[in-house]
Amino acid sequence: MANTRDIRSRIKSIREIQHITRAMKMVAAAKLRKAQNRQALSMPAVEVLSSLLDELLYGAREEINPLMRKREGGPPGYIVITSDKGLCGGFNTGIIKRAMSLVGGGGLLVSIGKKGNSFFARCGLEFARKYEDVSMGEPKRIVNDIAGFIIAKFLSGEVGFWDVVFNRYDSVYEQGVVAERIVPVDIDRQSKERPPMYLIEPSYLSLLDAVIKQVLRQKIQTCLMKSDVAEQLARMNAMESASDNAADLIDELTLNYNRARQAAITGEIVEIVGGAEALASAY
């Protein structure tokens, strides 16, 4: 059995680790709230833009805008969102696994997040574009950059469609890795009711084009925000279970420690009693 001093020092170090994981959990919880807040604040823009697009698409056919044209069998394009930081449980493994199964068949890869970047680089995959520290830098510029890139690649015919692969957390029942098609724009989303007769300036086609592009940017931004929420949640859960595991370990080690301490005391008593008896029988 390990000696009491060793056990005591292990308990001490585990307790220190527990302090850290607890603190990290609190930080993740605060960041989660912020991320959820940000996402909620962006909802008005999402709603207005997508309802306007639905209205504009009323009765439309897919040839009307090049970004709506479906192509059979074009090479795929994927935008994969991972985290910049680790210690978030299975957050990145889930996306990377999904992304590898998708990208394995070829296609263009746009990677966002340090974890994905380093993993894909190790696998020898080629990046069409890669980004890091999106939330620290200028998210808007990056979103515009990505949108410009994927539009150009789609219009030139190098890519048949673009999917965003990311983690989402909408509710307990709606979570996990999803691949969301963002280009071409789905024509079936058009509104079922006849929209108001808008007076449109400068023209229907140029307005539709502007709206589609803005919706696309908004969608990329939303995916980044959702991924951020899921990341903070994953980190919070990971840190919570780490703290729980540390508590279990401490309990177990404390039991061992008390046992070892008791054994040592018993041993000492036996020695004293044995010594006393030996002395008594000697006289």
Partner: peptide, 14 residues
């Protein structure tokens, strides 16, 4: 430049 007054017809622009 444009201006919108109440009861303007449905309108959308860039």
């Amino acid at each position: 430049q444009f201006s919108i007054l109440p009861d303007h017809t449905a309108y959308t622009t860039i």
